[in-house]
Amino acid sequence: MATDFGSFFLNSLPNLLNGLGYTLLLTFISIAVGFFLGITLALGRVYGNKIINGFCVGYIELIRGTPLLVQLFIIYFGLPSVGIIFSPLQAALIGLAINSGAYQAEYLRGSIQSVESGQMTAARSLGMNKLQSIRHVILPQALRISIPAWSNEFIYLLQYSSIAYIIQVAELTAEGKFIAAHTFRYLEVFAMIAVIYLVLTIVSTEIIDRIAKHLSIPGIGAAKRVSLRDI
């Protein structure tokens, strides 16, 4: 039985690794693109004028108010009807990044607003302009404060990238489904997939935790929040 499972696992390995590759690709690209989107939106919300602020709020609320799967369906099934066609992978990347951008914007906004107003005042009194103050004083603090939330977001994306399976991206879950459909060993396959996600979650949490420790500065952030391990 054990050797049987062993050889089964080995036979599945190429497919699983292939799927894992796509899962990581989806996760990393969408967290990175979502990050830049999120920062832009967060800055727009905090420092933008009425119009910019309104636009950012609208975007954030619309995205956070609807399921990721609906967003993917609109992009993958809906847009081709108006002539905009994406491959499954493209659609998934765009959907995940757009989605993550909205959530990251909210974390970042919270962090930016939690930097005391005196920091901006002090920066301005030194002669920095607003952009310099944001860049050299506000963001370095806000980004550190948002690491725990960002860690959550990473795990969230890692797991929700599995939704891309539904629009035919050959990521981890899809590969699992594929193997299971050919071997009829659903329980073992999905247990295996579950364990892989679990390990990924634990490992990436640990890595981000290390990074956070490395970047931490006495008196800023982290301590006030839930421990990173508690995810």
Binding site: Q119, R124, L126, G127, N129
Partner: peptide, 28 residues
């Protein structure tokens, strides 16, 4: 901003930049 370079300001509640060392607070 040019003028503010010539007017120092010392705050009641310090407003040191929390993410910078004492040295970099002064050099930034």
């Amino acid at each position: 901003n040019k003028i503010r370079e010539k007017i120092g300001f010392v705050f009641q509640d310090f407003n040191l930049f929390n993410h910078l060392t004492a040295l970099r607070n002064v050099s930034i």
